[in-house]
Design a protein around this nucleic acid. Structure first.
Lengths: 198, 198
DNA sequence: CGCCCTGTAGAACGGTCGTTCTGCCTTGCC
DNA sequence: GGCAAGGCAGAACGACCGTTCTACAGGGCG
């Protein structure tokens, strides 16, 4: 009677596996850690692992899917606040900056993952592309509700700043990176809004 | 009597090894390819490989060092042209855009590498940091020769756009990415130059 | 000539990879 | 009570990992 993918009770062992995978994959990379490591730190046995996941690749996909849902939740919350679009964009940027300055930040989980899966046909690579397309579309919609004709390049610009900030956030001084990022976003929003007053 | 690191004749086998490593590491990642693969594609034997490199890690460092020298060469050429600083910055941005649109582009070799080596103490990670520091310093110097007080945030902004463009360059439409990047750089240069008219 | 360096060729090392397997013990529902 | 499902424990698989080894062939230089 065990449920399908919409099962409400995800089995404690499975959740422990996914949490451990998230922590280790995000913190140390994917190819360089073996399933034994995740299994032992999640305090489960190999048999249990292979009962819940067909293999390592599936665990990686589940890890990215969880990250995707977490970010969508953040953005959806910002949108649900019902503020004007520029303020929503600022809120999204703020949540990105907050993430960069949070403990254990190791860059963008999706950019890191795609660096290890260059093959465009690979499921992991495609999961990254899907996530990024959603994010770009979301920003594009927000930009379009400010001004339509130039919304797309503005959204591209926003995402480019985000990618740069996420990439450099664990390589340089985080505070400086966030200042630069937020300043760039603010300039971008103002320039874009100035095209169509109110 | 074999030369030290300043040897002029780098031994054909060693060069073949390095070229093959560059191609495969850049194209497919580092942890996911074994030395056997590089050895066989470089048409050398294991013994020859281990005669020239203490191990795989050293080959990775040599790969990044070669990439570092290539980029420094590009930037030095742009600087040596003796154009005014804004034009030099434009030339650097153009060469980045050209790289993104070139065949086989797979993102920034250094950002890709650091995604696989998160440990800040690891030699590979530090090689990435060193390269990035040089690049930031170089852009900072160019910005400072336009206007001094705000040069540092402007340089940070430039690098952030570069990182974003390089990261997205192999995930989205390259032409669009380059347009967005060059437009952003142009705006940045103009804004920065406007602080101190000539 | 003799020696060292560079290269080829291939076997072999211990370790780890992802994966599969056989058991046994609990828990909860029919 | 019975029985399937989920979890634990641990052995074992073949494949590949990075690395080391022996053995031999050519070539330049003292």
């Amino acid at each position: 009677m065990a449920g399908s993918e919409t099962d409400i009770r995800p089995s404690e062992a499975r959740q422990r596996l996914l949490d451990t995978a998230t922590r280790i994959f995000y913190g140390e990379g994917i190819h360089s850690v073996g399933v034994d490591r995740i299994i032992s730190e999640a305090k489960v046995t190999r048999a249990t692992f292979y009962r819940h996941f067909p293999g390592k690749e599936n665990l990686v996909l589940a890890y990215l899917q969880a990250a995707d849902q977490a970010i969508r939740g953040q953005v959806d919350t910002a949108i649900a606040a019902g503020l004007p679009a520029p303020d929503t964009l600022r809120a999204v940027a703020e949540s990105i900056a907050q993430g960069i300055q949070s403990a254990g930040f190791r860059g963008c989980a999706f950019l890191n993952a795609v660096a290890e899966y260059p093959d465009p046909d690979h499921p992991v690579h495609q999961a990254v592309l899907t996530h990024r397309q959603w994010f770009l579309d979301t920003i594009n919609t927000l930009m379009a509700s400010i001004e339509k004709t130039e919304a797309e390049p503005a959204a591209q610009h926003f995402v480019m700043l985000r990618d740069g900030a996420m990439a450099a956030g664990c390589l340089f001084d985080r505070v400086l990176i966030c200042e630069t990022f937020l300043r760039g976003v603010e300039g971008l929003i103002r320039t874009h809004a100035a095209r169509q007053p109110a």
